[in-house]
Simulated assay, not measured.
Amino acid sequence: MSSEKSLYERLGGIEGITTIVDDIIDLHFANPGIKARYMPLKENPEHFAEVRKHLIHFLAAGSGGPQTYEGGDMVTVHTGMNISKAEYMDVMDDIMAALDKNNISEDAKKDVLAIAYSLKGQMIGV
């Protein structure tokens, strides 16, 4: 049995992941390259809460936590958004900045980055 902690544990469990997701969202609202996509969430608090919950559960479940992600698959969720490569990189930059802000280890950041990059083709231009 390995003594290495899961990515979920290295991200701080559900509390740490919730903080990271909230930081990512704040960065998206401030990022000039993508904020126009996220600002409408502020106008619909119920939808915002649902998106936030899905983001938290997606990262928690995807990192080995006990949470269940009940949102749509990446292609379905992003179809019609026509996300550009530049927008995708803005999102990635915000994710990495949030991980840095929360003092996440380099190994855990690399693992999150690998997960995010594995989904790239399911989001860009669909």
Rank of each mutant, 00 (worst) to 15 (best):
S3V: 05
A97S: 12
Q67Y: 04
D100W: 03
H28G: 00
H54P: 01
S6M: 10
V91M: 10
I14Q: 09
L59Q: 06
P32C: 06
M39W: 00
E50Q: 10
D73S: 03
I25S: 01
L7A: 15
G62P: 06
L41V: 03
A116H: 05
Y69K: 11
I56W: 02
I104M: 07
M74R: 01
G71M: 06
D22W: 02
V112F: 08
G33M: 08
F29S: 00
E87C: 07
G64A: 07
G16T: 06
N102V: 06
P32F: 03
Y8L: 12
A30C: 10
G125R: 07
V75C: 00
A108G: 14
Q67N: 13
L55D: 08
E106P: 04
K53C: 01
V51Q: 11
A98T: 01
A98V: 03
S105T: 15
V91C: 04
L59G: 01
L7P: 13
K42H: 05
L7V: 14
H57P: 00
S63A: 13
Y8W: 15
E15A: 15
L113E: 05
G121R: 14
K109Q: 15
Q67I: 02
L11T: 07
I104H: 02
Y38K: 00
T18A: 10
R10S: 06
P32M: 07
H47E: 07
D93C: 08
H78L: 06
G65W: 12
K85S: 11
E15S: 15
E9K: 09
S3Y: 01
D94P: 12
R10I: 04
I56M: 01
E50V: 03
D107W: 03
A86P: 02
D22H: 10
N102E: 12
E50W: 04
G80Y: 09
G121H: 12
Y88W: 13
I104A: 02
G65D: 12
I20Q: 01
S84R: 15
M123A: 09
K120S: 02
H78F: 05
L99A: 12
E106M: 08
P32L: 08
M89F: 10
G121E: 14
A86N: 14
S105A: 15
H57K: 05
Y69W: 11
G64Y: 09
G65M: 13
I17D: 05
T76L: 10
N103M: 01
L99K: 11
P32S: 08
I95V: 15
G12M: 08
G16P: 06
F29R: 04
A108H: 10
P66Y: 10
L11F: 09
A97K: 15
T18D: 08
G12S: 07
G125E: 13
V77D: 12
Y117N: 15
I56R: 06
P45A: 09
G13S: 11
I115R: 14
L55R: 12
L55Q: 14
R37E: 08
E50F: 04
T19W: 08
L27D: 00
G80Q: 11
F48Y: 09
V77M: 13
I124L: 13
E43M: 10
D100P: 03
I115Y: 12
T79M: 13
L11P: 04
L7Q: 12
N44F: 01
I14P: 01
M39N: 01
V91Y: 03
E46A: 11
G64I: 11
T18V: 07
I20C: 04
